[in-house]
Structure formats: structure tokens, C-alpha cells
Design a protein around this nucleic acid. Structure first.
Lengths: 205, 205
DNA sequence: CCGGCACGTTGATTCAGGTTAAGATTTCAG
DNA sequence: CTGAAATCTTAACCTGAATCAACGTGCCGG
């Protein structure tokens, strides 16, 4: 947990997205970043509250969910080397609709809206990075939406596990059910139904 | 239909997004744009085919849908002053997952992927525009997803009609049902149920 | 004017998943 | 070690929407 250089991961990530970014631009960027740590259970964003920071996860785990009639509907899980933030709230400057809660002790690198806008003015590459990141978020969103429309629950489960294989070890099953859009009971039923058909269990705990 | 200046609408749109864009930058941009027209029923993007252009709708109407088990699931409708394109395919350079079909004769202004990348190199403002547009698409997507998660069918219907009031006059009801994620039969029933409760019909044809 | 087609409605049946409830199992603090 | 809380499973019953099918109604071309 004691990184030699606390922005290392973010820097690597940026240099992969935009290899042409100069060391100078990075130095400026670095200056307005800050590191924050959170304990399991804390929130990085909450419904009704403006989300004023984008956070890049150094280590830890988070979930994003909506509150629907008092019930939590999980939209995504997020670990190391990803952004966590209600980017919708952040961009639109309006109260968040989603909740972003940490499922483990977590360290993030973050930047405030104000500072980011400043960065866009000062560092030209920042706009390219900002564009690429927005595009990537858009692509991820597309993937999610498409899967919800086209895939069966089982297919979505398989995809989830193959994309984030560490998930079953780190989050309870009822959260995965919530992500799939069904109740824990239904999920349990589906699992047992599938495992009865094949002698070798497909869905692992 | 005979616009004095065929890029007028796009220019206005851009200048609203980025007022600081110079006339010079616009001149360069303008040079790589082209106008295309389509007849009702034609496709701007098809599943399995790379979508190599972003198109800005000058006039006309389009729908975006996925094919699920041979059935069409409409994701959005799109008219004047919006982009139509499988932006996912366009950005990722992979075959499209969605179909974009014109529901009326349509005129678009469009730009190819290659030309856009070139523009990003040559005109610095283009990156800002690109970022803002990607951000907006992301926000729209969020709205859609959130509505699907949180709102009832009736609420989503009301939202749709208040956002695109011209819709019922221009598309058949079964397409609206598809957008809402239910069958035409179910939609019909919901409508009649609602209209029975209130003496004055709420859902118009 | 007629026949066909696209669109909308209505009814009967079916089914996946929700709900409720009760146990079984795991986890963890004290 | 022990008991409470959290999690997972199973079963019985219920519900909303899909499916299948039949039937209007309006529109268009010949």
C-alpha cells in the first residue's frame, strides 16, 4: 500500500491513453491532484448531492447504485485503475442520482471540477485526454446498455465474471443479483437450475 | 428544403457549444464536411457493419434499434439538430451493434472517421468540441439508463412525449411500445387502463 | 369499389420472476 | 466458544407482461 510515488498508476494510465503527453504537461497536472483515502462503507457520491470530484482508484473496490423505491439497484462495480464518480453529476453540475459506495478500504487520486476546468485551459493535451476518457465512458455505457437489452441474465452473469473475475470473492451474491436486475432468490434459483443440468457447476460461489 | 447555406444549422450548433471557436477553424472544418440525403427506410448504420461517419441531422427523423432474437428493440428516436450514428462503432472501429434507420426522407451533414481524426490534429478547438460532444452523449445515455432503472413505463412515456412531442404524429405506436420495452399489446392495455381511470384521456394517439 | 395490408385493440393462456416466509449456513464480535 | 447478524437457499403463492389468436379499422392501389 505504500507506493513509492502516489501518482504512478494514474501517470501510467494517462501515458497509455495519450503517449504524446509531455512531461511538462504532466507536472502541471500532478500539482492539482490530491490523494484521499476512504474506509469501507463510506460514500464518494450520494444521491441529491453534487459530485464535485472525479476519483481514480489506486486500490480498493466500489459499487455504483441507484435507489429505486427504497431499494438499491446496482449499476456497476469498480476496482483499481478505474474512475469512480457520478460523472453525470460532475459534468452537469447537478445533484447526483446515483450512490457510489466503497466496499473496501480505498485510496483514490482525485481532482475537483474547478481544477479540471482550469487544467483544460492551461494544458491543451488535457482536452484530448478529457475527450478520450469521455469517449471511453460512453463506450462502456454502450456495452452495459446493449448487454441489458440483448443478453439473458445468464449471459450477463458470464460476461461480468469474465470481465471482473475477482468479483465473487469480494462482494456478496445479493449484490451480483442486484446488478443483474433480479432478486437474490431468483438468482439463487437460476444458479441451482443451471448447476443441475450440467454435472460440473458453471456458476461458482 | 433549399437552405441558403447548407452548414448553417451545424455552425449554429457548434457556436453554441463553443462560442470561442474562431471563424478560421470553422472554415477548415467546413471543408471536410459533406451533405448527404437519404430516403425513408434507408439505413445510416447496420448491425455488423462498421459505422464510419458521424451524421448531423439537418432535417428528417431516425430511429436506433437493436436486433434481439430477430425482434427490433428501439433505443432512441432522433430528429433535427442531433447526431445519428452508431457512435460506439464509430469510436471503437468495430462492427456496429445497432441499426440506424430513417423514418422520413432526411438530410444530414457528415464527416468520416479519418477526416475527424485529421481535424483533431489540425484544429485544436476540435478536441474541445469532441470532448463536449462525447460528454453530452454520455449525459444523454445516463438519462436513458436511469429512466429505465427508476421510472415506470408510464413515467418513461410521459418523459418521452414531453421531450419529443412530435413523436406520436410521426411514428406508429408499436415503435413507441418497443422503445418502452414492452409489446404493442401491453402498451395498448396500459393506455386503456389509464384512460379509463381519468375521464379526460392522458395518453394521446 | 374492392381486396389487401398495416396498425391497433381485446381476450385467453402461460411463464419468469417478485413476494413472503422459513430454514440453513457463514461471519464475526465479545 | 457463543450468540446475533448477515447471507444464502428453498418452497408456495401471486402478478405483470409475453404470447397467441381473433377481430376492427383505416388506408392505398388497382
Amino acid at each position: 500500500m505504500t507506493d513509492v510515488y502516489k501518482f504512478e498508476k494514474l501517470k501510467t494510465y494517462f501515458s497509455r491513453l495519450l503517449p504524446t503527453m509531455t512531461e511538462e504537461s504532466w507536472k502541471i497536472t500532478e500539482n492539482i491532484l490530491s490523494v484521499r483515502t476512504f474506509k469501507k462503507g463510506e460514500f464518494i457520491a450520494r444521491g441529491g448531492v453534487l459530485c464535485d470530484h472525479v476519483s481514480f482508484l489506486n486500490y480498493g473496490l466500489a459499487r455504483v447504485y441507484y435507489l429505486v423505491d427504497g431499494k438499491e439497484k446496482i449499476v456497476s462495480f469498480c476496482n483499481e485503475l478505474n474512475y469512480i464518480c457520478d460523472y453525470e453529476s460532475f459534468l452537469s453540475r447537478r445533484p447526483a442520482h446515483s450512490y457510489v459506495q466503497l466496499l473496501e478500504d480505498t485510496e483514490v487520486v482525485d481532482i475537483s471540477y474547478k481544477d479540471l476546468q482550469m487544467l483544460y485551459q492551461v494544458v491543451p493535451e488535457a482536452n484530448i485526454l478529457g475527450r478520450i476518457i469521455a469517449e471511453q465512458l460512453f463506450l462502456e455505457m454502450c456495452n452495459g446498455t446493449r448487454a441489458e437489452v440483448k443478453d439473458t441474465i445468464l449471459e450477463r452473469y458470464s460476461k461480468l465474471i469474465s470481465e471482473q473475475p475477482w468479483l465473487p470473492q469480494r462482494v456478496p451474491q445479493y449484490m451480483i443479483a442486484s446488478y443483474l436486475g433480479i432478486t437474490p432468490e431468483a438468482f439463487s434459483r437460476i444458479k441451482s437450475r443451471v448447476n443441475k443440468q450440467k454435472e460440473v457447476p458453471v456458476m461458482v460461489d
